[in-house]
Design a protein around this nucleic acid. Structure first.
Length: 414
RNA sequence: GUGAGUAUAGCUCAAUCGGUAGAGCACUGGACUGUGGAUCCGGGGGUUAAGGGUUCGAGCCCCUUUACUCACCCCA
C-alpha cells in the first residue's frame, strides 16, 4: 500500500513557497504598521473551548472538528479557527489589565470537510484580534489594514459590510424573522426550511431562485438594529468613507460563527470560484466573557492563505526565487576541492553560493547552476586553484570577465 | 453527508471499429577531452488507479472499489 498525503492536507513545494513568504512578509509588515503584535498559540486546545466559544450548534464544531481523546485522559481538538485559542490565551495570561491589545497570528487550522477549490482540511490563516476597545474606530482601522494589505499584494477584492446586531436587538429580530419564514415555509426550498430553526440568518443568503420572492419581503436586520448598533454601523461606514475605503453594505452578509456581534465584513475575489471569500471578520463583544474572562470587547478577522495564493497565482504574481549569488563548477578533483573551500569562505561572509557536489560534465553543472537561479558561475580547475585567477561568468548575459578568487566577495557585493 | 465528472510515463496529453501502449516536456548519455539554454542522435522509465466480468482478444464495453476534481451544505 502506497503511503500518500492525507486527504485535504497539501504539500507546498519549494517552487511555490515564495508566494507564501511574500504574503507572510507583507502581512507582518502591515500588522507592524498598524500596531499589531504577533502571538503564537498551540494548534491543539481542549475541545470544550471551541464548543463554548465558537458554538455547539455550528457546523464547524459539531461536524467538522477533529476531536480526539488523548490517551483516554481528556478530549482535545485540532483548532478549527484561530479566535477561540487567542481569546483563551488573552484570558489565561490576564492581559485585560494591560488595556488595548492588538494581536495577530499566522498558522494552520483544521476542518474535516470535503475538499474543493479553496477549501482544505488543513488550511492556513493569517488573522488578528483587537481586545479592549468597543469603539468603531477599531473596526475601521482593522478593515483599512486588510484593504491596505490587499493593495500591497496587488490583489483587487470586493468588500462587503453588515451589522449582525447585538444582544439587545438580535434576539428580537431573529424571533420576527423566524416567524416570517415559518409563515412562508411552503414557498421555501428544503434547505431553507431546515435552516429556519438551525440558522435563520442563512436563509437570507439562499441563492435558490424560488426562494427569492419570500426573501425580498423578509424583515431586514438593518431596519431592526437598536440605536447602539445603528450608531456603531454609521460610525464604521463614515470612518471608511473618510479613509477612502470602498465597500458595499450587504444586509444579507452573515457570519457562520455564533460569537459575532455588530460589525461583520468579508473580502471576496472573483478569481476563486465558488469559495469566493478570501478574508472575513467581525466584532465579538461577548466572547471574552463567554469564555470566562472579564467583559472585554473584541474584533478580528481571518484570511485564508490558500485562497490568497490562488488569487496571486491567477493574477500571475509569483515573486522570483532568490538564487545564490554565485555557483562554482569544478573541472577536476583539484577544482572541486577549491570550490568547496571558496564556497565556505563566501558563506562565512554572508554571500549565498552553491556548487554541484556531483561534479561531472560542464553541461550538467551549468544546468544545475541555472536551475537554482544563480546569478554568476565560476569554473574552477587545477589552473585556477594554482593561479588564483578565474573567469566570472554572468549567467544571464553569458559574459565572462577575469576575476581574482580573492576578490570574489568584493565583486559579488559590488 | 449529497451530487456530477475524471483516472494512461515524474508533468501535460494521444492511442481510429475492441486488435500487441505513443508523443511533447522533464531527466539522462553522446555529437563537444574545461563552458549551459539552440540543433541532432541515443537511453531509462508503464501492473493503462485496483479487483472482477464479457470476448479469440480490453487502455477502450459492463460491474464493484479506491483516489482525485468541481459543486451542494458550510466556510478562510
Amino acid at each position: 500500500m502506497k503511503i500518500t498525503g492525507v486527504k485535504g492536507m497539501n504539500d507546498i513545494l519549494p517552487a511555490a513557497v515564495g508566494r507564501w513568504h511574500e504574503m507572510e512578509r507583507l502581512a507582518r509588515e502591515v500588522f507592524h504598521l498598524y500596531g499589531y503584535r504577533e502571538v503564537r498559540t498551540p494548534a491543539v486546545e481542549h475541545a470544550a473551548l471551541f464548543a463554548r466559544g465558537v458554538g455547539e450548534a455550528t457546523d464547524i464544531v459539531n461536524k467538522e472538528m477533529y476531536v480526539f481523546e488523548d490517551k483516554g485522559e481528556e478530549l482535545l481538538a485540532l483548532r478549527p479557527e484561530g479566535t477561540a485559542g487567542t481569546v483563551r490565551a488573552f484570558i489565561e495570561h490576564g492581559c485585560h489589565v494591560e488595556g488595548l491589545q492588538k494581536w495577530f497570528y499566522i498558522g494552520p487550522m483544521f476542518r474535516r470537510e470535503r475538499p474543493q477549490k479553496g477549501r482544505y482540511r488543513q488550511f492556513h490563516q493569517i488573522g488578528c484580534e483587537a481586545f479592549g476597545a468597543g469603539q468603531p474606530a477599531v473596526d475601521v482601522e482593522q478593515i483599512a489594514l486588510l484593504a491596505d494589505l490587499f493593495a500591497r499584494l496587488g490583489v483587487t477584492t470586493d468588500l462587503k459590510l453588515n451589522s449582525v446586531g447585538d444582544a439587545t436587538c438580535r434576539p428580537a429580530y431573529l424571533a420576527s424573522l423566524k416567524g416570517y419564514l415559518q409563515g412562508h415555509a411552503g414557498a421555501l426550498c428544503a434547505d431553507c426550511r431546515d435552516r429556519i430553526e438551525r440558522n435563520p440568518l442563512r436563509v437570507l443568503d439562499c441563492k435558490v431562485e424560488s426562494c427569492q420572492p419570500v426573501l425580498q419581503g423578509a424583515p431586514r436586520l438593518l431596519d431592526a438594529l437598536c440605536p447602539g448598533c445603528k450608531d456603531h454601523l454609521d460610525a464604521v461606514t463614515s470612518g471608511l468613507d473618510a479613509l477612502g475605503v470602498t465597500y458595499r453594505l450587504d444586509p444579507r452578509l452573515v457570519r457562520g460563527l455564533d460569537y459575532y456581534t455588530r460589525t461583520a465584513y468579508e473580502f471576496a475575489s472573483d478569481a476563486l470560484g465558488s469559495q469566493s471569500a478570501v478574508a472575513g471578520g467581525g466584532r465579538y463583544d461577548g466572547l471574552v466573557e463567554t469564555l470566562g474572562g472579564q467583559p472585554t470587547p473584541g474584533i478580528g478577522f481571518a484570511l485564508g492563505q490558500e485562497r490568497l495564493a490562488l488569487i496571486l497565482e491567477a493574477v500571475g504574481r509569483a515573486p522570483p526565487e532568490q538564487g545564490p549569488a554565485v555557483f562554482f563548477l569544478s573541472a577536476d578533483e583539484q577544482g572541486a576541492r577549491e570550490a568547496l573551500k571558496r564556497a565556505s569562505e563566501l558563506r562565512k561572509l554572508g554571500i549565498a553560493c552553491d556548487l554541484d557536489p556531483r561534479g561531472g560534465k560542464m553541461k550538467t553543472q551549468f544546468k544545475q547552476a541555472e536551475r537554482v537561479g544563480a546569478r554568476y558561475a565560476v569554473v574552477l580547475g587545477g589552473n585556477e586553484a594554482a593561479s588564483g585567477e578565474a573567469k566570472l561568468k554572468n549567467l544571464e548575459t553569458r559574459e565572462e570577465t577575469p576575476v581574482r578568487l580573492d576578490d570574489l566577495a568584493a565583486r559579488l557585493r559590488g
